[in-house]
Computed example of a mutant assay.
Amino acid sequence: MTRLLVVAAPTIDLPGGGGKPRPGGPTIYAGCAGALLGCEALASGPVGLEHAGPVVEAHRRLGVRLEPIYYPGPSFVFRLTYEERGRRAELAAAPRGGSIPLTLLASLLSRARPDVVVFSPVAFEVPPPAVPLALLSGARVVAVDPQGYSRVLGGAWPSALARGGYTFIHYSADDAQPAGSVPGLVYYTRGAEEGAVMLNGAKLGVIPRPRRVLSDPTGAGDAFTAAVACCLAGGGDVVECAREAVSIVPEALEEAHRAAEEASRALGLLPPPPVEPVGAAEGVKHLPGHEVY
């Protein structure tokens, strides 16, 4: 059985239009996609003690084994707004802690011995030097979704990954600012529109539009990343893996949203207290313990 490890922060999502708070983030959506594909799904990342119960319960309901790294205060909290051009996520709160220490990540990789690693920071929690450690630990496929690096660095986010050490990068029009030519294998998705598979800037193939578009697309990019990574680990073709990933995303999102909402109801998740929005790099770097890469 392929062992998938997702390294990212579980989040609390506040959907627009009156939606109720629920656990979310890459560990839930990527983990769920991996589990649906028959992988053993593991996850780890910072969890605020204020939201630990619903976060842990949602992962349990999905069969994703979460190893939380507890911090004081809230988890990462995002306000989600759905617009004609796609989804916008606004960071509203964060744990009182900085990046995950590299020594802790190295220990996690050594213990988990994953075949596939997905790094998908939502802000600043995964230090870029962690990426090459995954290949050194024996992982066959290492995927990076740079959404968090984009929130901190804007269009300069590729500089965070200059060390390489990844099999592919996936970034979407919703979550990462457009960048110039990104070296290596890149999957670029555009929500309900066609995307592209590129190698060193040259187009290899098309990522088809999803056949079924959900009203709530939260987590689609994370599910897609994990599905592509698991497919590649099984020896799949780089373009065909993108097509297979698109087909599984709706099922993964429906399952993950259901589990998150059930966990919230079961454990009585309440909205966090109102806080001032935290913007791009200028706002984020003032969070305690944060380092701008």
Rank of each mutant, 00 (worst) to 15 (best):
L4R: 06
L4P: 13
A9C: 13
P10F: 06
T11P: 10
I12Q: 05
L14G: 02
P15Y: 01
G16D: 02
G18L: 04
G19Y: 00
P21W: 00
R22C: 08
R22V: 07
G24E: 01
P26I: 12
T27Y: 09
T27I: 13
I28K: 07
Y29P: 09
C32F: 10
G34P: 14
L36E: 08
L37W: 05
C39T: 13
G45D: 06
G45M: 12
G45F: 10
H51K: 04
G53E: 02
P54H: 00
V55C: 00
V55W: 00
A58Q: 06
V64G: 01
L66Y: 04
E67A: 08
Y71A: 15
F78N: 03
E83M: 14
R87V: 15
R88I: 14
E90S: 14
E90A: 15
L91A: 02
A93L: 07
A94S: 07
A94I: 01
P95D: 01
I100V: 10
P101A: 03
S110I: 05
A112G: 04
R113C: 06
E125C: 12
E125L: 12
V126G: 08
P127T: 01
P127H: 02
P127V: 04
P128N: 00
P129M: 02
A130T: 06
P132R: 00
P132L: 01
L133V: 08
G138A: 02
A139N: 04
R140F: 04
V144T: 07
P146G: 05
P146D: 03
G148T: 04
L153F: 02
G154L: 07
G155R: 14
A160R: 03
A160Q: 03
A162Q: 05
G164H: 00
G165T: 10
G165S: 04
I169D: 06
H170Q: 09
H170W: 12
D174H: 15
D175S: 15
A176D: 02
A176Y: 02
P178W: 03
G180C: 06
S181Q: 13
V182N: 10
P183W: 00
R190G: 14
G191Q: 07
M198H: 14
L204H: 06
P210A: 10
S215N: 14
P217V: 08
F224M: 14
T225C: 12
A227G: 11
A229Y: 01
G235Y: 01
V239S: 04
A242D: 05
A242F: 09
E244I: 14
A245V: 13
A245N: 02
V246L: 07
A252H: 05
A252Q: 05
E254S: 13
E254H: 09
E255T: 15
R258Q: 12
R258G: 13
R258C: 11
A259R: 06
A260C: 11
A260P: 07
E261S: 09
E262Y: 13
P271W: 00
P272I: 02
P273I: 11
P274F: 01
P277K: 03
V278N: 06
V278Q: 03
A280R: 13
E282C: 10
H286K: 15
P288R: 08
E291Y: 15
